[in-house]
Lab assay of single mutants.
Amino acid sequence: SSGGSSILDRAVIEHNLLSASKLYNNITFEELGALLEIPAAKAEKIASQMITEGRMNGFIDQIDGIVHFETR
């Protein structure tokens, strides 16, 4: 797709992000992006959206560029 990722790509990214949230206590956007094979800024945006929508527990430290995952 030309304008970003398809629905399937997005679903795969979100699935992998949720998997990462179970493996890590926290991770930088750079590391997360590398893990998900997407730019760091996109990793931040998707993580932020999932947390806001209540689909993933955690919070974002924008100063240090880190996602902190919280286990249920």
Rank of each mutant, 00 (worst) to 15 (best):
G58T: 00
A11M: 10
H68Q: 04
F69I: 02
I38E: 01
G3P: 13
A47D: 00
I7V: 13
S19C: 07
V67T: 01
R55W: 06
H15W: 10
S21A: 09
K42Q: 15
F69Y: 03
V12W: 13
Q62G: 07
S48D: 08
N16P: 02
L18Q: 07
V67H: 00
I7D: 14
S21P: 02
I38M: 06
V67N: 01
N57W: 11
R10A: 10
G54T: 02
G33F: 02
Q62S: 14
R55C: 05
Q49C: 05
L35R: 04
R55D: 03
E31R: 08
S19P: 01
L36H: 01
E30Q: 11
R10I: 15
G54E: 05
A40V: 07
G4Q: 13
E70Q: 11
I60G: 01
Q49I: 08
T52V: 09
L36Y: 04
S1A: 14
E31L: 10
S21H: 04
I46C: 03
F59I: 08
N26E: 12
R10F: 13
S21L: 08
N26I: 08
D64K: 15
E70P: 07
I27V: 07
E53Q: 08
M56W: 04
Q49K: 07
L18M: 08
S48V: 09
N25D: 11
A41K: 10
N25T: 13
E31T: 06
S19M: 15
S19V: 15
G3H: 12
L32R: 00
G58F: 02
A43V: 14
V67I: 15
K22G: 06
N16I: 14
I51R: 00
I60K: 01
R10C: 06
I63R: 09
M56K: 00
S5H: 11
F29E: 00
I7H: 12
D9E: 08
D61Y: 07
G54A: 04
G65E: 06
A41Q: 10
H68P: 00
D64F: 14
I63Y: 09
E53A: 09
E70S: 10
M56D: 01
R55G: 03
N16Q: 10
G3N: 13
R55F: 06
S48Y: 12
L36T: 02
E53H: 05
S5E: 14
A34T: 10
F59E: 08
I13E: 04
T28S: 13
A11G: 09
E37F: 10
E31W: 05
E44C: 07
L18N: 04
V67Y: 02
N16M: 12
L32G: 00
H15A: 15
G65Q: 10
S6N: 12
F29S: 02
G4S: 11
S19G: 10
K45H: 13
S19Y: 10
K45S: 14
Q62E: 12
I60H: 01
S1C: 07
E44P: 01
S2E: 13
D9P: 06
V67E: 00
P39S: 14
A11K: 09
A47C: 06
S5M: 13
M56E: 02
S6G: 11
F69N: 01
I27D: 00
G58V: 03
S2M: 12
I7Q: 10
R10M: 15
E70M: 10
S6D: 12
I51Q: 03
L17R: 01
S1H: 12
A47W: 03
K45V: 09
V12A: 11
K42M: 15
A41G: 09
L36S: 02
D64Y: 14
E44N: 07
G4E: 15
K22V: 09
I13P: 01
N26Y: 15
I27Q: 03
I13C: 03
I63L: 10
Q49Y: 07
G65D: 03
A40Y: 05
G33D: 02
E53Y: 04
F59A: 06
G54R: 05
I13Q: 05
I27N: 00
K22L: 09
T52L: 13
I38V: 08
I51Y: 03
L23P: 03
Q49S: 08
N16K: 15
G4P: 13
S6Y: 08
L35G: 00
K22S: 07
G4T: 11
M56Q: 01
I60N: 00
A11L: 13
A41I: 08
T71P: 12
L18P: 01
E44Y: 14
S1F: 05
A20D: 01
K42I: 15
D9F: 05
L8C: 06
L23M: 12
T28E: 02
G33Y: 02
Y24P: 01
A34L: 13
S1K: 04
D64A: 15
G3W: 07
G65F: 06
T28P: 04
E44F: 13
F59P: 00
K22D: 05
I63E: 10
H68T: 06
F59T: 08
I51S: 01
S5C: 07
F29T: 03
D9R: 06
M50A: 03
S19R: 14
I60Q: 01
I66R: 15
A20L: 15
E53G: 07
H68F: 09
N25C: 09
S5I: 13
N16C: 06
G54Y: 04
V67W: 03
P39R: 03
I60T: 02
I13F: 05
A34N: 10
L18S: 04
G33E: 04
R10T: 13
L8F: 14
L17E: 01
G54W: 03
K45M: 14
N26H: 15
I46H: 04
G4R: 02
Q62C: 06
Y24W: 07
M50S: 01
E70D: 12
A47Y: 03
A47H: 01
G58R: 01
L17K: 00
S19T: 11
G4N: 12
I13K: 03
I51D: 01
G3R: 03
S21C: 04
A11P: 06
L8R: 10
A43S: 03
I7F: 13
A47L: 09
F59M: 07
E37G: 15
E14W: 05
S1W: 07
G4A: 10
I38P: 00
E30Y: 08
R72A: 12
N57R: 09
N26V: 11
A43G: 02
